[in-house]
Write a protein that binds this DNA or RNA. Structure first.
Length: 606
RNA sequence: GCCACCUUAGCUCAGUUGGCUAGAGCGGCGCAUUCGUAAUGCGCAGGUCGUGAGUUCGAAUCUCACAGGUGGCUCCA
């Protein structure tokens, strides 16, 4: 953790991984002399290198088998131990072109460097280069600007591991060659490597797909279709509780709740521009009478139609229209992932319609409301992005983008959020703020978004009557806070590793009668707790108490109330928490009062 | 969609180089047990080995196709 202070690019680990990538490529060439090298950078927690292995006798691209990877790893370790110095030099563009004459991918990189387009990582560069960096160890020479470690031995053979291979498009372009990528990881020493591998194992235990099955929260069935979620009673309850809380907060914060249909006529989607811009993500038309209808990929056109049902005065604004709207989008089969990426999902969507002068405050309110909601779920670690105008594809002139972009930036700063700027990352219709959460495997998933829209108010010719009696165009802001209920639930499950805070736990209390003769007392207590609004199960199975406790632990139920003779006599319950904490006998009324407080305050602790 | 890998009971997984009625644990059901803070014992049921072709005297095991899943790539809440 000591290198967190300095940028990753300047850290030891970066050099170690970059050098490991070179030695791995050296090992690959030993087994596949005909392989063409593409690129091999360090990445978070490791490195990769891309290869073109040519074609087999049937003309199909050759790939790495698991056995190949084992051998490459063994060779790589051997080569690391057989010490060699990393030597840096440079070549002129012409020299490099001659030297890499048989390396087509390197030639392409050199050409782009020489043309001043992009560097080897695909990032734009400011001016053409005349000399390119070269790193060599033994006979392995690579186009590379480093940095590297001094000697191969500085990459410990027992701190390196090849993880997997996969296909990867050259330059990230699916229309270009598909290369074979090998991922590896490298650390300072073996202990760090083991810790990393252990971390991966731990992460798997938090995987929402695994927990979803174990805790009986949701499923997806091939018979239903990929990316379509079935919410089981327990998962449905958690989702209901989350939605109920959010809807009430919306009502308390100046939003109106609306409902709109799942399909709409093609004319609606023509007007909105979806059929022009978004058709690839939409499902095929549904024929009804003489008309084509489409399943909605977004809710906005419907909300706009509600707006347009009547004239609006400047006094009516701002209008905040919210809907838990279920949308359907075509996602390619390979991208589906548990609850995180699905084909049908419910957005906590809202559209804000306001006057120009109200815009900065609306942004502020939206962002603060968003943070309030996320924090209510115990989520306070997220990565904020401000996406700005892409000159090549954007509606409206640059000037028009300025005020909204500044308003978004100001809101981020007033909220005290660190944020990164995604230059040119905005949609064509306006700038936006995104908040992304990190899942168990370290991947980022976007939840919240606050997006400006210059486009739809125009297309639908939305107006309001201003103080001057003239028609004006309202500003429109799309925003989703949890994003989609599916993805949010996925993140939430992983955030708590399935151990939901009391207010969200599908079963809050399980009664553990020690013997069957204590069941009536357990039932009586359960009824009292239920009357107070708690969700209580009674374990009447013929198992021993230990087993009942174990089952409750595995289900991550917050409280286990053990009741036997002593408790029955004194109107108490023996409180045990899922944190393995045994609080002993507590008067029932005390337990109830405590639990009630924790629920109303949405406490994270038990 | 592309590349690789995977698919055996409700779940998690064994199943040697192809060879007897395909196994285990958990879960389910039954019986016994009534127990003080993470697994009581015994018994029973449960499988067209993802689907379809092929190779073979013989296929869970080898080949091909398809479907579904997983990890990447591309793409996005």
């Amino acid at each position: 953790m000591s290198e967190e202070k300095i940028p990753y690019e300047q850290s030891d680990l970066y050099r170690i991984r970059h050098s490991a990538a070179h030695v791995m490529a050296e090992a690959v060439l030993e087994h596949f002399p005909e392989a063409k090298l593409a690129i091999g950078p360090p990445i978070a927690d490791g490195f990769y290198y891309d290869f073109d292995l040519g074609q087999d006798e049937n003309g199909k691209p050759k790939t790495f088998s698991p056995e190949d990877l084992e051998q490459i790893e063994a060779t790589m370790k051997k080569l690391l131990k057989k010490n060699a110095k990393f030597e840096q030099s440079s070549k002129t563009v012409a020299e490099a072109q001659e030297f890499f004459a048989d390396a087509p991918y390197k030639l392409e990189l050199i050409a782009e460097l020489a043309a001043g387009k992009v560097d080897e990582n695909g990032n734009p560069i400011s001016e053409p280069v005349t000399e390119v960096g070269i790193y060599q160890h033994r006979n392995f020479v690579d186009l590379c600007r480093g940095p590297h470690v001094g000697f191969t031995k500085q990459v410990k053979a027992n701190a390196v591991k090849i993880l997997r291979s996969s296909g990867a498009y050259w330059r990230g372009d699916e229309n270009r060659e598909q290369l074979q990528r090998i991922y590896g990881t490298a650390w300072h020493n073996r202990v760090e490597l083991d810790e990393y591998l252990k971390r991966l194992e731990e992460a798997k235990k938090r995987d929402h797909r695994k927990l979803g099955k174990e805790l009986d929260l949701f499923s997806a069935a091939p018979e239903v279709g990929g990316g379509l979620i079935l919410w089981h009673p327990k998962g449905g309850l958690v989702r209901h509780l989350a939605e109920e809380f959010c809807k009430n907060e919306h009502l308390a914060n100046g939003y109106d709740l609306v409902y709109t249909p799942h399909i709409g006529r093609s004319t609606l989607w023509e007007t909105s521009g979806h059929l022009t811009w978004y058709r690839d993500d939409m499902y095929a038309a549904i024929q009804i009478d003489e008309e084509e209808y489409f399943l909605k990929p977004m809710n906005c056109p419907f909300h706009i139609m509600i707006y347009k049902e009547k004239m609006h005065s400047y006094r009516d604004l701002p209008l905040r229209m919210a809907e838990w709207g279920t949308v359907y989008r075509y996602e390619r089969s390979g991208v589906l992932h548990g609850l995180m990426r699905v084909r049908g999902f419910t957005q906590d969507d809202a559209h804000l319609f306001c006057r120009q002068d109200q815009m900065p405050e609306e942004i502020d309110r939206a962002l603060n409301f968003c943070l309030h909601i996320l924090r209510s779920f115990g989520m306070d670690k997220f990565h904020a992005y401000l996406s700005t105008r892409d000159e090549k594809k954007s509606a409206g002139d640059a000037e028009r983008w300025e005020a909204p972009t500044e308003a978004l930036r100001a809101a981020l700063e007033r909220a005290g959020l660190d944020y990164d700027i995604d230059e040119g990352g905005a949609a064509f219709y306006g700038p936006k703020i995104d908040l992304k959460m990190i899942d168990a495997l370290g991947r980022e998933w976007q939840l919240s978004t606050i997006q400006f829209d210059f486009n739809l108010p125009e297309r639908f010719d939305m107006t309001y009557i201003g103080q001057d009696g003239e028609a004006h165009r309202p500003y429109m802001i799309h925003r989703a806070l949890l994003g989609s209920m599916e993805r949010f639930m996925g993140v939430l499950i992983e955030h708590y590793a399935g151990a939901f805070p009391l207010w969200l736990a599908p079963v809050q209390v399980v009664m553990v009668p020690i013997t069957d003769r204590h069941i009536p007392y357990a039932e009586k207590v359960a009824e009292e707790l239920r009357a107070a609004g708690l969700r209580v199960d009674v374990d009447v199975s013929s198992e021993r108490m230990n087993k009942k406790i174990r089952n409750a632990q595995l289900q991550k139920i917050p409280y286990m109330l053990v009741v036997g003779d002593k408790e029955e006599e004194n109107d108490t319950v023996a409180v045990r928490t899922r944190n393995n904490e045994n609080r002993g006998a507590v008067p029932l009324a005390d337990f109830l009062a405590q639990a009630a407080t924790l629920i109303t305050t949405k406490a994270l602790e038990l």
